[in-house]
């Protein structure tokens, strides 16, 4: 069973993700920005999926993905799904280079997020 962290500075968006994933019974951890996300992922090795916003205060999502890539956490199996209003090809390329598995542009369809999470979980 996966343990997921949602890193997003929007309380509403975190709640929407929680609701979308509720049917799976997956344990969900929340982080309010990139720095908070980094601290929580480092502290909890059981987290194996990260749903990550891009534009956040303190540390953005691309920087967080790159930091985790650098630390070898992605190589150890952490899967990152970017969930953002951004859709620029250059940013997508940076996330991909950092080891992200997917990119979803907000607003998202709950069933689509669920399907994407299931896809990366296997």
């Amino acid at each position: 069973m996966s343990k997921i962290i949602i890193v997003d500075d929007s309380n509403t968006m975190r709640q929407q993700v929680r609701q979308a994933l509720a049917p799976t019974g997956i344990t969900l951890v929340e982080a309010v920005d990139g720095q908070d996300g980094l601290t929580k992922v480092k502290a909890d090795p059981a987290i194996d999926i990260m749903i990550l916003d891009v534009n956040m205060p303190r540390m953005n999502g691309i920087e967080l993905a790159e930091a985790l890539h650098k630390e070898g956490r992605i190589a150890k199996g952490l899967k990152i799904i970017m969930l953002t209003t951004e859709g620029h090809a250059e940013l997508i390329q940076r996330a991909k280079a950092a080891g992200a598995k997917g990119w979803i542009v907000k607003p998202f369809k709950p069933e689509m997020l669920l399907a994407t999470v299931k896809k990366v979980a296997v």
Partner: peptide
């Protein structure tokens, strides 16, 4: 990418 679109790597 547009709103609601998904790209898998």
């Amino acid at each position: 990418l547009q709103a609601g679109e998904v790209q898998m790597f």
